[in-house]
């Protein structure tokens, strides 16, 4: 349970949350009718120049003010409640507001540089769990795509938990474990680097690519493949893992925004407990992949 000192702040935060929600209601009451009026004008006067500009401006303003309130409260919750209680619960963790840089995200080689045009990352936790040095955060990578009308829009390439941890074996090459794909062209181009492994369930879920066939099997021992299958079933999301120069990079797609306050619910111990569970879920990846076993030459 959260510490008493933090609990004492729940009332203060609850009051701020109520005020913020009241303010958000006022914003809805202002922007709702304005949008309605703009739409009505557009329908009545079809010759109105740039008909959608008005809608975009009003809807954009609406979103901006609501988002501003959410962010303001989210930040306050993190500094006053989340971070102090997390650090008490997990003393070996350090919290950073900013996440892992785009450069380190791309180091994993799990996503192509050309596919990441916009990137943001937040809520990074770092530390040493057992014998394993790690950091994980929330990351969102998007690709800019042009549409047929000449405009462009951003499409999510990755959104979820991204972790970098020290691997327990010394490695020289690059091995990537991606979701299995039936794309024939992709298979044809990658057939030289594809590793066919001796674990049917693993092979059904994942495709493995490596520049060293033996090292790939050194990393993906039968026990490790079993653990990765278990990781996949636990999260039940698109999971990609790469092993590069003594590090393991894990990208788990997860649409839900983690480590955040739920503004719709009362600020109490349950909110903090939920975040504890989210952090524990991420830390358990290290235990599940058995990264703390150091029986090989790497200490």
């Amino acid at each position: 349970m959260p510490e008493q000192a933090v609990e004492a702040r729940f009332d203060e935060l609850e009051q701020i949350r109520n005020e913020a929600n009241a303010k958000k209601n006022r914003i809805h009451w202002i922007f709702g009718p304005i949008l309605f009026a703009v739409l009505a004008v557009l329908l009545m006067y079809t010759s109105f120049p740039f008909p959608f500009m008005g809608v975009i401006v009003v809807a954009g303003g609406w979103f901006y003010f609501i988002n501003k309130e959410n962010e303001k409260f989210g930040k306050l919750f993190k500094t006053k409640v989340m971070v102090p209680s997390l650090l008490k619960r997990f003393p070996h963790l350090t919290y950073h507001e900013k996440g892992i840089s785009k450069e380190h995200f791309l180091t994993s080689e799990l996503y192509k540089i050309s596919k990441v045009d916009r990137y943001k990352s937040e809520d990074m936790f770092s530390g040493v769990h057992g014998k394993t040095k790690f950091r994980f955060c929330e990351a969102h990578a998007e690709e800019k795509r042009k549409n047929s009308k000449g405009g462009s829009s951003y499409h999510t390439v990755f959104q979820g938990v991204y972790m970098i941890a020290d691997f327990n074996k010394s490695l020289k090459g690059t091995t990537r474990v991606l979701q299995a794909s039936d794309n024939f062209i992709k298979k044809l181009f990658n057939r030289k680097t594809q590793v066919s492994l001796d674990h049917p369930e693993f092979e059904e879920i994942f495709n493995t690519y490596s520049d060293d066939q033996i090292e790939a099997r050194y990393i993906l021992s039968p026990a490790m493949m079993e653990r990765i299958v278990e990781l996949q079933s636990r999260w039940d999301e698109d999971i990609r893992i790469s092993f590069i120069r003594d590090h393991v990079f894990i990208a788990i797609h997860h649409k839900k925004n983690l480590f955040e306050a739920n503004m719709k619910k009362e600020i109490n111990a349950d909110q903090v407990k939920r975040i504890y569970e989210e952090v524990e879920m991420c830390l358990s990846i290290i235990d599940l992949l058995d990264l703390n076993t150091r029986i090989w030459t790497k200490e």
Binding site: D198, I214, A216, R217, Y218, S221, I295, T297
Partner: peptide, 22 residues
């Protein structure tokens, strides 16, 4: 020595699997 032996046995197991696949 035991760490080195574990390492070699692990690498050997990987090489054995790679050999069998080939």
């Amino acid at each position: 020595l035991q760490r080195s032996l574990n390492e070699i046995e692990e690498q050997l197991s990987a090489a054995r699997r790679a050999y069998n696949a080939s």
